[in-house]
């Protein structure tokens, strides 16, 4: 259940940004979750709902966007099929993960600034 510690980092970062911008409240957060980020979006949502009370995120809706993982050859750019051996069958080079496939990113914070 590392989702709780991730949510803790998320909320404290959002509060920091909100204070920097002089926001009175936060309305919405958008977080992208890569398929290989090791995070379950549903659990992340549950952890967020548990944790946001009493913080600046109390009334902020969380939107999670799932990013499908994809591997490709760093040489010829050929995509590697899902579940296949992670090596290009033409160039024989080790596959490379496309950006976002294994990341958990805070994309957008929507806040009310007076």
């Amino acid at each position: 259940m590392h989702e709780y510690s991730l949510v803790q980092s998320l909320v404290s970062r959002v509060e920091q940004i909100a204070r920097e911008k002089g926001a009175v409240s936060v309305h919405r957060l958008v977080v992208s979750v890569g398929e290989l980020a090791g995070v379950d979006p549903q659990l992340f949502q549950t952890a967020y709902d548990t944790f946001r009370g009493g913080t600046l995120c109390e009334n902020a809706a969380l939107e999670t966007r799932r990013v499908e993982a994809s591997w490709r050859c760093p040489g010829c750019g050929r995509p590697i099929a899902r579940g296949a051996v992670l090596s290009c069958e033409v160039c024989r080079r080790p596959a490379e993960l496309a950006a976002g496939s294994d990341a958990i990113l805070l994309e957008t914070v929507e806040m009310e600034v007076p």
């Binding site: 991730l6 805070l106 994309e107």
Partner: peptide, 17 residues
């Protein structure tokens, strides 16, 4: 109505770690 300001970040949640 309140002014809603979207802040685009695209930053890692694990940046602190």
């Amino acid at each position: 109505d309140p002014d809603l300001v979207p802040v685009e970040l695209h930053e890692k949640i694990l940046a602190g770690n």
